[in-house]
C-alpha cells in the first residue's frame, strides 16, 4: 500500500514562508486535486513531495519510505522516492534531443537497468496507452502540446510509480488539447493510480478527484470531499476563489 503522508511540512525561501505547516494524508488509489490562487504554494508543495524542492521541516512519507525533512536526505532514499513517485510538469520538459521512444525508455535503462529492447517494448505499451504509439520515432518538437504532455505522462509511468504528481498539466495547453490530457489522466485515475493534481480545471477537481485541498498563502484553508468543497465551500477565501474561477 502506498499511502502518502505529509506531516507539518514547511518551506521557506529566506524569511519568506512558502509552505506553512502543511498536513494531509492520501490513501492508496485516491485522487486529490490541489486548487487555489497563484502563489499559494500549490506547486511548491507538489515539488516538495518528490524533493525537487527539499522542505525545511516536517515529514514526507510515501509508502514505507519516510523522509525527515530536517535531515540531509540519503541518496538511496531520494532514488526510491523518485522511483515511487512520478512527476508531470506544466511545461512538459520532454528531452528534445531524444525521440519520443527514447524519452520514455531512458529511465528504465538507467534506473531500472532494463535491457534496451525490453525497455522499448514497455515504452511502446505506455505510448499505446496514451494513444501515441505512432509517434514513437518522432522528436518531441514534432508533436502538439497535448501530445507532448501525454508523452510526458508515459515517461513518468515508465518507472512503474505508485503515485503520480501533476503540476498544472493542462495550463500550457489550449482547451481542446488540454482535454486529451485530462482524458488520459481520468483513465489513469480509473486504474487506481494514486494521484495528486495541482490544477485550475475545476471540472476535473469536482468530477475526477475524490478530494480537494484548497490552498492560500502557503496554508491549507480547506480540505474535504470534492463535491462538498466545490458546491458548498466553507471559508470565505475559498468561496471568493471559486467565484473568480467560475465567473471567467
Amino acid at each position: 500500500m502506498t499511502d502518502i503522508r505529509v506531516d507539518s511540512v514547511s518551506k521557506r525561501y529566506g524569511k519568506h514562508v512558502v509552505l506553512d505547516d502543511i498536513n494531509f494524508r492520501i490513501k492508496s488509489g485516491e485522487v486529490v486535486a490541489i486548487i487555489g490562487p497563484s502563489g499559494s504554494g500549490k506547486s511548491t508543495l507538489l515539488r516538495c513531495i518528490n524533493y525537487l524542492e527539499p522542505p525545511n521541516s516536517g515529514i514526507i512519507a510515501v509508502g514505507d519510505l519516510q523522509m525527515d525533512c530536517e535531515a540531509r536526505p540519503a541518496n538511496t532514499d531520494l532514488d526510491r522516492l523518485r522511483r515511487t513517485v512520478g512527476m508531470v510538469f506544466q511545461s512538459f520538459n520532454l528531452f528534445p534531443h531524444l525521440t519520443v521512444l527514447r524519452n520514455v525508455s531512458l529511465a528504465q535503462e538507467r534506473v531500472l537497468k532494463r535491457p534496451r529492447k525490453e525497455a522499448d517494448e514497455r515504452s511502446m505499451e505506455l505510448l499505446r496507452r496514451v494513444g501515441l504509439a505512432d509517434k514513437s520515432e518522432q522528436y518531441p518538437s514534432r508533436c502538439s502540446g497535448g501530445q507532448q504532455q501525454r508523452i510526458a505522462i508515459a515517461r513518468a509511468l515508465a518507472l512503474d510509480p505508485k503515485a503520480m504528481l501533476f503540476d498544472e498539466p493542462t495550463s500550457a495547453l489550449d482547451p481542446e488539447l488540454g482535454l486529451e490530457v485530462l482524458t488520459v489522466m481520468r483513465e489513469l485515475a480509473e486504474t487506481g493510480m494514486t494521484m495528486i493534481v495541482v490544477t485550475h480545471e475545476m471540472r476535473f477537481a469536482e468530477n475526477v478527484s475524490d478530494r480537494v485541498i484548497v490552498m492560500a498563502d502557503g496554508r491549507i484553508i480547506e480540505h474535504g470531499e470534492s463535491a462538498a468543497i466545490m458546491r458548498s465551500p466553507q471559508t470565505a477565501r475559498t468561496q471568493q476563489f471559486l467565484h473568480a474561477v467560475r465567473d471567467r
Binding site: 523518485r82 510538469f89 520538459n93 538507467r110 534506473v111 515508465a158
Partner: peptide, 12 residues
C-alpha cells in the same frame, strides 16, 4: 526544466 525532468525520472 531539463535537469528537473531528469531528476524527477530518477537519473543519477
Amino acid at each position: 526544466g531539463q535537469k528537473e525532468a531528469a531528476i524527477a525520472i530518477g537519473l543519477s
